[in-house]
C-alpha cells in the first residue's frame, strides 16, 4: 500500500505497481472489497494528496481537484459557481458518503447512475488525467466509455475536472423512490449559458453513459428570449420536453422501467426549464 502525499508520489506508485487499485473515498471500491469481488494486491491511497482536494479558477474555467468530496462541492464559493453540481452532490448517498466520496471517484466508477455525471456532461467538462510519464485531457464523453468503463490507463489517475464558469441558472433534478440515500432512477441537469445563448442538458440513468440532449438544446436556443430572459412559448417547451425524452435510451431494470424513465426525464426537463426561466408554462 502507498499512502501518497503528492501527485508525483501517487503517479510513481502507479508506475511501479500497474495492478494497483486507486483508493480515494472508498465508497465504491470498498463495497466490492467487502463482498470479496475485488481483490487488492496494492493500493494507492489518494485521500492525503492536498493538490487533489483543491480547486481554483483559471480564466473562465474552474479546475476541480478529483479529490474534492461531495460535501466539498457544497461548501464555500462552489455552490454559487456550480449550483447544479452542488445540488447533484447533495443527492449522493448519505452525509457519511458525501464526506468520503469524491468527484474523481464518481467519474472513475462511471456508473450510469453517477449523480455528478449529467452535470459534468451539461457543463462540457473535460477530465485531466495524469501519469508518471505525462498528462492528457479528455472530454467527458471520451472518458466515460461504457457502463462502469473509463479511459484510464493502468498507470493513470484523474487529477482534475475542468468546467467553465457560466452566466446563467443551473438546475439538477433527480428521481429516486426514496426521499434520500437513493440511486437515481433518472436525473437531469440543465445549464444556461447566457453568454453563449445556449441551454445544455445532461441526462443520467437513461443510457450506458451520461447523455446530452443535443437536439433539444438546439431547439431551445432559438426559443429563449435571450435579451429579456423570457421563457420559451408553451409549444416550444412541449417540443423541448419531447426532444429530451426522445434523446433518452433507457432500459428496464429493478429501479424503474424504460417507459417510466423516458416519461420522467421529460417531466424533469420541463421543470428544470421552468426553474431556469420562471414565469412561463409549467
Amino acid at each position: 500500500m502507498t499512502i501518497a502525499r503528492t501527485l508525483d508520489d501517487a503517479c510513481a506508485a502507479l508506475a511501479e505497481h500497474p495492478q494497483a487499485r486507486l483508493l480515494a473515498g472508498g465508497t465504491d471500491l470498498m463495497v466490492g472489497v467487502n463482498r470479496g469481488q475485488v481483490g487488492l494486491d496494492h493500493v494507492v491511497v489518494l485521500d492525503r494528496v492536498d493538490e487533489l482536494r483543491a480547486w481554483h479558477r483559471t480564466g473562465d474555467d474552474l479546475l476541480l481537484g478529483a479529490g474534492l468530496t461531495y460535501a466539498d462541492l457544497g461548501r464555500g464559493d462552489l455552490p454559487g459557481l456550480l449550483p447544479a453540481l452542488a445540488q447533484a452532490a447533495r443527492t449522493v448517498g448519505s452525509p457519511q458518503i458525501r464526506n468520503a466520496g469524491t468527484l474523481g471517484g464518481n467519474l472513475a466508477t462511471a456508473s450510469p447512475a453517477g449523480d455528478t455525471l449529467p452535470v459534468l456532461a451539461a457543463l462540457d467538462a473535460t477530465v485531466l488525467l495524469r501519469s508518471a510519464t505525462g498528462s492528457r485531457e479528455l472530454p467527458l464523453a471520451g472518458f466515460v466509455t461504457g457502463v462502469k468503463q473509463n479511459a484510464l490507463e493502468p498507470d493513470e489517475l484523474i487529477e482534475a475536472v475542468r468546467v467553465p464558469v457560466l452566466d446563467g441558472p443551473q438546475e439538477f433534478l433527480k428521481v429516486g423512490t426514496r426521499n434520500a440515500m437513493v440511486i437515481s432512477v433518472v436525473s437531469l441537469a440543465l445549464v444556461v449559458d447566457r453568454g453563449g445563448r445556449g441551454v445544455r442538458v445532461g441526462l443520467g440513468s437513461v443510457a450506458p453513459v451520461p447523455l446530452r440532449a443535443a437536439e433539444a438544446e438546439a431547439h431551445l436556443a432559438d426559443h429563449v428570449g435571450w435579451d429579456d430572459g423570457s421563457p420559451p412559448a408553451p409549444d416550444a417547451v412541449d417540443r423541448f420536453v419531447e426532444l429530451v425524452a426522445g434523446a433518452a435510451r433507457p432500459i428496464d431494470d429493478h429501479r424503474g422501467s424504460a417507459d417510466y424513465r423516458r416519461h420522467a426525464v421529460g417531466v424533469l426537463a420541463r421543470r428544470a426549464l421552468h426553474r431556469a426561466f420562471p414565469g412561463g408554462d409549467r
Binding site: M1, I3, M30, V43, V45, P95, I97, N99, A100
Partner: peptide, 15 residues
C-alpha cells in the same frame, strides 16, 4: 472529525 461509514474505510489507509 468527519462522519464516515467505517465499512468503507480501508483500515490500513486510516493510519
Amino acid at each position: 472529525g468527519e462522519l464516515v461509514c467505517s465499512c468503507l474505510v480501508l483500515a490500513a489507509s486510516a493510519v
